[in-house]
Amino acid sequence: MAAPKKDASKKDDKLADYRRKRDAAKTPEPVPPDQALPKGDDDTFVIQEHHARSLHWDLRLERDGVLVSWAVPKGIPPDPKVNHLAVHTEDHPLEYAAFEGDIPQGEYGGGTMHIWDRGTYETEKWSDREVMIVMHGSRVSGKYVLFKTRGKNWMIHRMDPPADPGFEPLPGKLQAMRPAQNKRLPRDQDAYGFEFAWGGRRLLAYIEGGRTRWTDGRARAVDGPAGIGPKLGESMGARPVLLDGELAQVEGRETYLIFDLLHLDGHPLLDEPYEERRRRLDELKANGPRWQTTPWFPGDGEAVRDAAHAQGLDYLAKRLDSPYEPGAESDAWRLISRRR
C-alpha cells in the first residue's frame, strides 16, 4: 500500500504556531481559519505596545502573507549608539496589524495591547539572519537593521542618525542637587516656589523602555523600592525620563514623591529654570498607586510654612529661575526647618 501523501498546505502553514497558541473562543485576537494566506505588498509595519507580564513592544513586518514578528523589550532604539534586544516570535496574520484590545489573563500574551505606531517600510535586505529596512511611521522613521545573535534572540540597530538632532541619552548617573540650610523665609517670596520637605530617602529614577533603575543622592546604584519601579516604568511607556524625588511614608505606605524632572524625551533639562521643570513635571502627570508628583506653590511661602508647621514638616524655598546643579549644595534651594 502506498504511503499517504502529506498535506502540503499543513506543512507550509506559516500560522500553525500562532493558531496553536490561541483559542478563538477565548481571545479577541484575529485567528483566521486554516486557508490560503492573503497577499499584500510586503510594505506594512506595525509596532504594538503590549502590557503583558512585562511591558514590551511588538514589531511586525508584512512578508509573504504574514506579519513576521519580534518582541522588543525596551522598544525601538532612537539612537544608533544603543542596540536593543529583539526576540523573534511566531508569525502573525495580516489582520493583526489593526488589532488593539485586552487579551484575557491566563491566555497566551494576556494583557492590554494598543498600536504605538504603524506605517510603510521598504526592504533593503532580507535573509534568515539579517533584515534591513527603512520605516516610514509617525513615531519611527529611518533605516534599521535586525540581526540574529543566538536562537530566537536578535538585536535591532538604528543605522541613521537620531531623527531628533538634539537627542541625548539618559545620563549613566547623576548626583542630586542639595539645598542649603536656612532658618527663615526669603524676603522676596515672589522669586521662589515652595514645597514641603517629606523627610524621606533621596532617589533618582532613570526610566527607559518602560524599565526603571535607581541611584541615591550620591549617584550610587541602589535597589529600588519593592513594587514601585516596574509599575512606574511601565506608566511612562517608551518615554525616556529622569526623575528626582524621595521615598517617604504617606498615609502608612511607602511612596515615591517626585519633585523634579531632569531629562525628558531625549532632552536634558538641567539648564532649564526650576519653574519650567516643575511645569513640565506637572504636564507629565506622574501619579500612580505608590508614586506622586508633589505640589509646589509659587510665591506662597507663608501659607506653606504654616501648613508645614501644622503637619510637623520642614519646607523648601527654590528660586524660580534656578537651574539644576548636580552634586551642588546651592543657596538657590533653601531647606527651612520648622524648629525656629
Rank of each mutant, 00 (worst) to 15 (best):
E195N: 08
W154H: 07
H136E: 10
W116M: 11
R129A: 15
Y96S: 01
K152M: 12
A205L: 07
M132I: 10
A86I: 05
A97P: 03
K152C: 05
Y96M: 11
K148F: 15
G110L: 06
L146K: 05
G200L: 06
F99S: 04
V131R: 13
G200N: 09
P165N: 07
K173L: 12
Q181R: 12
L203I: 11
A205D: 03
E130L: 12
R178D: 10
F147R: 15
R129H: 14
D91N: 15
G106K: 06
R139I: 05
P162I: 00
K143W: 02
M155W: 13
M159K: 09
S141I: 01
K183Q: 10
G137L: 10
Q189T: 11
W154L: 06
Q189D: 02
H88L: 14
G137V: 09
N153K: 12
G119N: 08
L146F: 15
Y108W: 03
K183V: 10
I156K: 06
G101S: 07
M155A: 12
G193E: 09
L204A: 13
P165Q: 02
G142W: 01
P162A: 05
G111K: 02
G199Q: 08
M135T: 15
A180W: 03
L85D: 15
D91T: 04
G172L: 13
G137D: 11
F196D: 04
A205G: 04
T123I: 12
M159Y: 00
Y108A: 00
D102T: 08
G166V: 04
L170C: 09
I115L: 10
G109V: 02
E124P: 00
L203G: 03
T123W: 08
T112L: 07
P162W: 02
A176N: 13
R129K: 14
Q181W: 04
H114L: 09
D102V: 09
E95A: 15
P171L: 08
I156L: 09
G101F: 09
L146T: 06
Y192P: 01
M132T: 11
W198A: 10
P186D: 06
V140L: 01
M132C: 11
L146Y: 13
E100T: 14
L203R: 08
R129Y: 11
V87H: 00
L170E: 07
M135V: 15
R184F: 10
R184I: 00
G110Y: 09
E168D: 05
A98E: 15
Q175P: 06
G109D: 01
